[in-house]
Design a protein around this nucleic acid. Structure first.
Lengths: 217, 217
DNA sequence: TAGATTGTTAATCGATTAACAATC
DNA sequence: TAGATTGTTAATCGATTAACAATC
């Protein structure tokens, strides 16, 4: 699989292609041209072809793209053709929301446990997922071969806990804490800063007239 | 306030500037140069100056930027110097997580109510916030002058509910449903697609070696 | 005043779009 | 084969970085 120097912009768009291809499959559509897909997604056909060709030639001249095949190929590119074991740090509402969202498991993300400092939560299970004390972090990570941790705890303790996670073998952090983590180069981080997202919505609302239609998507 | 043709990229960065300035204030820092801020934030000083100058000259030659003043100015740009009334559609875990996150209220986002189809949730209150039936949408939106709706319901009903929200006067939608909403031009949408975020993390994990350090932030 | 640092213009870099030859 | 549509190169557009004169 080719993937040297793929830009952030392209990677950001891949999951959206994947979603639209999934919808097309559900509709029973077998093939689609970059032009038709571009109309659905409100992007240019040129961009779709450019994006996909970073990873290989998935289409066929005169025919377009086979929906099921392209769907599988994008899954491979995204790494969701394989299983990933995941834990959730913080069993509050946000942690529970993630634990209850069954679609993640359909995509191969297996939630192996949740962790919390609150002794009243420890020992409970949420949709069959056990809540552990933080002291058990190392053991569970090693035993269950966990690669990914979702960090849904207040920012105050986030950096400290993240460092522990990395020390225990975690290689990817899905960071919901409102802070930027500073971790070794071989650990990947994806930030979800909800408060920043809400501020951007506020910006758009307040400056509505001067914001281009493009921006609203 | 100048805001013609501000690019998405700039708007995306504004809340992060705001967050770092808040931290500087907490540390008692009164002034900061673009250079010192750039080192903290791991961006270029040039970019900071360019970004801010889209909205006006907030600094002073030979001095830098007054932290408290710049903090306030960015708040104005983001529209968080004013109050926004907000409702949450869907009182599940995600809706409750938002309702329980008190920082939003500190930033002027006042949660006026939650809505759910589940009759067992209707009538409850969460942190003092009442849960209403969907039938009461129109009345509450008009009575409480609600501008913003957080949409935390399954994608199947999202489009339909979003259209109702708009009909009842909502001008901004914070969309957590895994679907792209198609709404009139005078309604702004900010998407939070968690499954896409997790796929991007998966991509970075799988392609770790070939991903630049820049990307990891 | 001299030093520091902004605001802003110019240069560079990267991403998007357009065009078209290759080919199914 | 003729028509359709990709893969890919070239042109354009936009965003980032560098440079420096203005000025506090």
């Amino acid at each position: 699989m080719e993937n040297k120097g793929i830009s952030k912009a392209v990677i950001k768009r891949l999951p959206r292609y994947y979603r639209y291809l999934g919808e097309l499959m559900n509709e029973g559509v077998e093939r689609i041209s970059s032009h038709d897909l571009s109309e659905r997604m409100h992007v240019t056909a040129s961009q779709i072809r450019q994006d996909l060709n970073h990873f290989g030639g998935f289409g066929q001249q005169g025919y377009g793209y086979n929906v099921a095949y392209l769907y599988e190929e994008i899954a491979k590119i995204l790494g969701i053709d394989q299983k990933h074991n995941i834990i959730i740090i913080g069993a509050g509402n946000l942690g529970q929301a993630i634990a209850n969202y069954t679609n993640f498991e359909k995509r191969g993300f297996i939630i192996k446990g949740m962790f919390d400092v609150n002794p009243r939560l420890v020992g409970m299970t949420i949709r069959g997922i056990p809540v552990y004390a933080l002291e058990e972090l190392e053991e569970i990570i090693r035993r269950e071969e966990v690669q990914i941790a979702a960090l849904t705890i207040p920012k105050m303790r986030a950096e400290e806990v993240a460092e522990k996670l990395v020390a225990y073998g975690i290689r990817a952090i899905w960071n919901f804490a409102h802070t930027d983590l500073h971790l070794p180069d071989d650990v990947v981080v994806e930030n979800v800063h909800l408060s920043e997202s809400l501020m951007r919505l506020s910006y758009k609302l307040v400056h509505m007239d001067s914001v281009s239609g493009e921006m609203l998507l």
